[in-house]
């Protein structure tokens, strides 16, 4: 699906909102993700830790973001994740690329099952702890390219 987004992009960069969802103060993973993205040429709007679910959506609107990358360690992220895509749709962000990573569920062992559940929620990708940037950066570049047209691709070819 190719979208001609009406919002122009003066800096020519993809805009990404990151943060740790819900009452979860574990900020390290999110900080690493934000840094990796910045180094890869993204414009990052990092909301930090303890971000209410609706603030991801509102911030993505204010930033005219192309992607939302949600971090979670407490295991309660799934509660919020269920409605994330629906809320994006309601807020006029139907095409935003949606990722989640970390301890995204409580006590379920089978990762394939977890991944299937989150895709069903409408996430484009979901990652377990310790995922390397080499794994998610190409996914993000590909998802953005397939979802939006852009004058300039800031992601270095690897």
């Amino acid at each position: 699906m190719m979208i001609n987004r009406s919002t122009s992009n003066p800096a020519g960069k993809w805009r990404v909102v990151t943060g740790v969802i819900g009452s979860d103060p574990h900020s390290v993973g999110n900080r690493l993700v934000a840094r990796v993205l910045e180094e890869a040429g993204y414009e990052v709007f990092n909301l930090g830790a303890m971000v209410p679910p609706d603030e991801f959506i509102a911030s993505a609107r204010e930033a005219a973001a192309h992607a939302i990358l949600i971090s979670s360690l407490s295991g309660f992220g799934e509660v919020y994740a269920r409605e994330m895509r629906a809320r994006c749709d309601e807020a006029g962000l139907p095409h935003v690329v949606l990722y989640m990573g970390g301890n995204v569920v409580n006590g379920r062992a089978d990762w394939q099952e977890v991944e299937a559940t989150f895709k069903q929620y409408g996430f484009d990708h979901v990652y377990p702890p310790q995922t390397r940037p080499e794994v998610f950066l190409p996914h993000l570049a590909a998802d953005l390219k397939s979802r939006f047209s852009s004058a300039k691709d800031p992601v270095p070819a690897s």
Binding site: S6, T7, S8, P10, A11, R15, E43, F45, S59, R61, E62, A63, A64, A65
Partner: peptide
């Protein structure tokens, strides 16, 4: 008002 700096302009 509307949009953070560098964010939504439209």
């Amino acid at each position: 008002a509307g949009g953070v700096d560098g964010g939504d302009r439209e």
